[in-house]
Simulated scan of single mutants.
Amino acid sequence: MNSLSHLNHAGEANMVDVSDKSMTLRQARAEAFVVLSEQTLALIMQGKHPKGDVFAVARIAGIQAAKKTSDLIPLCHPLMLSKVEVTITALNEPSRIHIETLCRLTGQTGVEMEALTAASVAALTLYDMCKAVQKDMVIESIRLVEKRGGKSGDYQVGTND
């Protein structure tokens, strides 16, 4: 890359002008993990958690976060997302929760930040919902898993490393 795209001619931070970019299908997947005790995971899975359906609330929070990414991340473009999906899966060995997000649109800029924001906020919501029963949970490995479309091409964990 020859120049930093978020700097103007005076070296000041500014939003990148994407008006000359082509409208193309763009998609990104991200993930995060929440490590928690077997007891806390059992409460969630048995529907006995005192705050109710933890996964449903985290899923909605992730979707809302993707839609609000430009309000949270400076210089991010507001996007008209056509798809936001948040999948939450309990894993038993070790005891943790896997969050995977998918964001898609036809537009002039990518959706990586939206997918990452959705995964992050879903993980934070899980933590918030469960902190009353366990405070030492760990949120880890928030990362972009896949990106498709756009000028920089496709990316997938493990194939472009």
Rank of each mutant, 00 (worst) to 15 (best):
R29Y: 13
V34A: 02
C103D: 03
S70W: 12
E38R: 01
E38W: 00
A30R: 01
A58V: 01
S22F: 01
R59G: 04
K51Q: 11
A61C: 05
T117E: 08
E140I: 03
I60L: 15
A118N: 05
S82W: 09
S37P: 11
R143E: 04
R96G: 03
K48A: 10
T89G: 00
V86G: 02
H49D: 03
D71N: 14
T109C: 12
T106E: 14
I97K: 02
D53Y: 01
D53W: 10
L75D: 09
P94K: 06
R29H: 15
V133Q: 09
E38G: 06
G47D: 10
L124Q: 09
E140L: 00
L102W: 08
V54S: 06
S141F: 00
T87W: 00
T106G: 08
K131P: 09
V86M: 08
E140R: 04
L41R: 00
I139D: 02
L116S: 11
T125G: 07
T109S: 15
T69Q: 07
A56E: 13
D53N: 15
T69A: 09
T109A: 15
M80Y: 06
K131F: 01
G62Y: 03
A42E: 15
L25I: 10
L81H: 10
A58C: 02
G52R: 09
T109Q: 07
V121K: 05
E140Y: 01
C76Q: 11
V35F: 10
A42K: 13
A66M: 07
C103I: 11
K48Q: 15
A28G: 02
I99G: 08
C76R: 09
T125P: 11
I139E: 00
S22K: 15
A30F: 08
L81G: 07
E85H: 14
L124T: 07
A30V: 13
T125H: 07
T89Q: 11
A66D: 11
T69R: 10
V54K: 09
V111T: 13
M45D: 06
L91V: 06
A30M: 14
G52A: 00
C130Y: 00
L126I: 15
K51M: 05
A118M: 04
G47H: 05
H77K: 13
A61L: 03
A58R: 05
R26K: 05
M113I: 14
A132P: 00
T24H: 02
I139C: 06
V133W: 05
E31R: 15
I88C: 09
E31T: 09
A66P: 06
I88L: 14
A32H: 12
G47M: 03
K83N: 12
T89V: 14
T69E: 04
A32V: 14
T24A: 12
K83Q: 12
A122P: 04
E100A: 12
R96V: 03
L79V: 07
S22M: 07
T125K: 09
M137P: 03
P94R: 04
P50E: 09
R59H: 05
L79D: 05
G107R: 03
G62Q: 05
A61E: 12
A115I: 13
L72V: 14
A122V: 01
T87G: 02
P78D: 05
